[in-house]
Design a protein around this nucleic acid. Structure first.
Lengths: 112, 112
DNA sequence: GTTATATTTAACCATAAGGTTTAATATCCG
DNA sequence: CGGATATTAAACCTTATGGTTAAATATAAC
């Protein structure tokens, strides 16, 4: 049973807060990739990319399968579920605000 | 027109990656609060809380309304929309995995 | 067995983050 | 005006983050 406690959300959102890491997840949404393949598109050292991958791994967003000298990374989106749910609690607020905006647009002179 | 570019997502997810800040947003979901009121529940200095509030503000999640010496903070959930959409692109992956799990549970001996 | 490939570890650096305390600023109130 | 209240700014500290290069480890391949 996976719990979505504060630490999980900390790790999840921290992992998602970096564009390199988000980009890596997008690549893994298409296919599994080795460390080297995952790192290749980025203009940074393999070591730096490897650290990003570890952050994703620690957030549970990547599973690693060692095949000889290759480490194959697989996307595990499950931890995002907690993040999605957390954000969804606020959805009514931006819907509300959009509603208010609509109202204003429908009677643009009511306040002037 | 608000764009959900990398920087916005960086700021959003970074803002959400801290439990104090998430807790502040939850408080603001109930009512608008001054800096002091927002800071009160946390065991840290006002200055520290004030810095967290600024991070939320820079992510666009809080609007500040200065009323005399009080600064009233209001939740602005709109920037979460981009984050929600980003995560939702991955929803099919954890749904897929749950489906796979269900299949495994339905025929638990098929692989042994 | 030696060499090439894939990845990690170690050591290091600069900057960001999260916290503190003390001082400054702005506003309200008597 | 002078004192209390609300908030920020400045200076500082410690640890985390994101990056580097060079060395170590493990496996593959000749």
């Amino acid at each position: 049973m996976v719990k979505y406690n504060a630490t999980n959300l900390d790790n999840l959102f921290h992992a998602l807060a970096d564009p390199t890491r988000r980009s890596m997840l997008q690549a893994l949404a298409l296919q599994n990739l080795s460390i080297g393949e995952l790192a290749e598109p980025f203009e940074m050292s393999l070591t730096a990319a490897s650290k990003h991958i570890r952050v994703l791994e620690q957030a549970g967003l990547i599973n690693r399968q060692v095949q000889g000298r290759n480490h194959i990374c697989e996307l595990n989106a499950a931890p995002m579920h907690g993040g999605l749910e957390w954000i969804q609690h606020y959805q009514r607020f931006w819907n509300l605000q959009l509603d208010t905006l609509e109202q204003l647009l429908q009677k643009p002179d009511s306040d002037s």
